[in-house]
Amino acid sequence: MLYAILCYAHEETVFAWSKDEEDAVMAKLLEVQAPYAKAGKLGPVGRLMPTTAATTVRKGKDEALVIDGPFAETKEVLLGFYTAEFDTLDEAVTFSKELSAVNPGSSSYEIRPFYVFHPGDMKNSESKT
C-alpha cells in the first residue's frame, strides 16, 4: 500500500528554530529515513514553505477566487509530507513514530493511504535537488 505521511505542527514554533537547531533536527530525520530509503520503500519527501508563501484558489460564485495564505487559518499547519510504500499499516505507524521521536517540532503525523493518479514527469532540476 502507498502511504502519504503528513506532518503537522505549530508553524510559529518551527520557524523560530535557529539554523543550528534546524540542522540538528533535519540530520536526525534523515537518519530515520535512511534505512527505508535503502530498502526502496521511500518516495518523494517534501518540506513545505511557510504558509505565508501559500496562495489558495477557492471556488467563487462566478470565477474562482485567489486568496493569499493557506486554505485554513489553523493553529497547526501542514509542514511537510513523505510518500512511502509499506506492506502494513503497522510499518507506517512505526516509521511515523520514529520520525516523531526525533522531531520536537511535529505534533502529529497523519497516515493517509493513496493511489497513484499520475506518476509525474517533472523535468525541472529543482524537483531533484
Partner: peptide, 10 residues
C-alpha cells in the same frame, strides 16, 4: 515579518 504577513496575508 513572517508573523506580520501571517496576520495581514494580503
Amino acid at each position: 515579518a513572517r508573523l506580520l504577513l501571517r496576520i495581514f496575508p494580503g
